[in-house]
Amino acid sequence: MLKGVNRVLLGIVGLVLVVLGGSVLATGLGVPAPSWWPYDGRHDVLLDEAERTRWRDEGWWWPAVIAVLAVLVLLSLWWLLAVLRRRRPAEVLLDTGDDEGASLEGRALEQALAEEASHLDGVDRADVLLTGRRSTPGTRIRLRLHPRTDPAATLRALTEGPLTHARDSAGLPALPAETRLQAVKHRPERVI
């Protein structure tokens, strides 16, 4: 979802900048501007002194400017942190039973789960992504199923097989999974 939000925000900002910059450039090159456009000639400035100082003496102006800028800074920081935040744990903490513990690389657990899940009956391909924290990981699993595969049986086999093996071998109390099933695209069958 974050990728979609990023693309939409960047698209809107880019479109606004291209339209404004292009219109100022076109007016500067001599293209006639509409009557409502504030910049109307090659030697005109975007903001003259009267426009820049018009609201300076109003009591609400500076608090409003500071509030808008503060909100923009906070939204920008939130967006930056959301983009930089790790989506998956790099390692999973294992309970070894001796109060020492160990760690397992997250990608290794993902690959092992995906490999075992792809060998289930009716599964063409399995993709696994770890989520959550190092001590309490979860998984997102996407299974691509062959046609005429029973989804309920596949989910039951996934829960009893790969997920249970991964949870038990890592010594985790639980390994929640969000599973998405998708049918493999295939060519139409000819009926005779």
Score class of each variant (00 low, 15 high):
Gly11Glu: 05
Ala112Lys: 02
Leu47Cys: 08
Val13Trp: 13
Leu84Lys: 14
Asp127Met: 02
Leu109Met: 07
Ala114Thr: 00
Val71Asp: 15
His119Trp: 13
Ile66Glu: 05
Arg167Ala: 02
Trp55Arg: 15
Glu105Leu: 07
Thr53Ser: 14
Arg167Val: 00
Leu175Gly: 00
Ser135Leu: 14
Glu100Pro: 12
Gly14Ala: 12
Leu172Ala: 03
Arg107Phe: 12
Trp37Ala: 15
Arg56Asp: 05
Leu175Pro: 01
Asp44Ser: 11
Val184Trp: 05
Gln182Ser: 14
Ala70Leu: 05
Thr27Gln: 03
Ala166Glu: 01
Arg7Val: 07
Leu163Gln: 00
Glu160Gly: 10
Gly22Gln: 04
Arg190Gln: 11
Arg144Gly: 03
Trp37Gly: 11
Ser135Arg: 15
Arg88Asp: 05
Gly41Pro: 05
Ala102Pro: 04
Gly122Phe: 01
Gly132Val: 12
Ser35Glu: 12
Gly161Trp: 01
Met1Ile: 14
Val184Lys: 11
Ala102Ser: 10
Leu47Ala: 13
Glu58Thr: 03
Lys3Met: 14
Ala117Asp: 00
Ser118Tyr: 03
Thr27Pro: 01
Ala67Val: 03
Leu75Ala: 15
Asp98Leu: 10
Ala174Thr: 02
Arg142Thr: 02
Arg190Tyr: 09
Pro147Gln: 12
Trp61Pro: 00
Trp61Gln: 02
Ala177Phe: 01
Thr96Phe: 14
Gly132Phe: 11
Lys185Gln: 11
His165Val: 08
Ala33Leu: 06
Trp55Gln: 15
Gln182Glu: 14
Gly59Cys: 08
Arg85Ile: 09
Leu158Met: 09
Pro38Ser: 08
Arg144Val: 07
Arg7Gly: 06
Leu155His: 06
Gln182Trp: 15
Asp48Pro: 14
Arg180Ile: 03
Lys185Trp: 12
Arg56Thr: 06
Trp55Leu: 10
Glu100Asp: 07
Gly161Cys: 09
Ala108His: 10
Leu158Asn: 00
